[in-house]
Write a protein that binds this DNA or RNA. Structure first.
Length: 161
DNA sequence: GCCATGGCTAGTA
DNA sequence: GCCATGGCTAGTA
């Protein structure tokens, strides 16, 4: 209950206890506030179109100050907004499914769920269990998508492209 | 000192 | 299979 709007810049408030837990609460947003870096990652992640995927590395390159795939993976793993933030659309560089909700590898139950979600969204899988390169969103395109989403105006002049 | 990564090397077939 | 990269958490002082 009481989805209190938290102060953007909560100075102290470690909110350790939070206890929360209170049964089925567990809604997203109750966990700790994502760092500025994580928020950038999530914003970019949200810009991945349905039916497409990107990789940890491409997402890292598309970040404002570019970072590493490893750091992106960590942010994904700690994503408190899943699946609202579609972290399931991020796969490994070799186009293998990757991980989901803390698990890694195609055998993990949660990862199978990830694959099911992607298939549902129209992402094609090859017989080897990898995602087709065709639907990969590269860093440049991802950055453009994110900018368009943020600006809403579509960027300069809009003409063409 | 961890990691939901990724690129490169070595070793084997 | 190894190790460099980047950001974060936990544990100490």
């Amino acid at each position: 209950m009481a989805p209190k709007p938290r102060p953007a810049a909560a100075p102290a408030a470690p909110a350790t206890g939070a206890a929360a837990a209170g049964g089925d609460g567990a809604a997203d947003g109750d966990k700790r506030t994502p760092t500025a870096y994580e928020q950038r990652v999530y914003r970019l992640c949200s810009a991945i179109p349905k039916g497409r995927v990107t990789t940890y590395g491409e997402l890292a390159k598309a970040l404002d100050p570019p970072s590493s795939a490893r750091a992106v993976g960590q942010a994904m793993r700690r994503n408190p907004f899943a699946p609202r933030v579609p972290c399931h659309r991020v796969v490994a560089a070799n186009m293998e499914i990757g991980g989901f909700t803390g698990s890694w590898g195609p055998e993990a139950a949660s990862v199978k769920r990830k694959r099911a979600m992607l298939i549902e969204e129209g992402v094609p899988f090859g017989g080897d269990g990898r995602v087709g390169r065709a639907c990969l969103v590269r860093a440049e395109e991802l950055a453009r998508l994110a900018a368009g989403k943020k600006g809403l105006a579509g960027g300069k002049g809009g003409a063409g492209e």
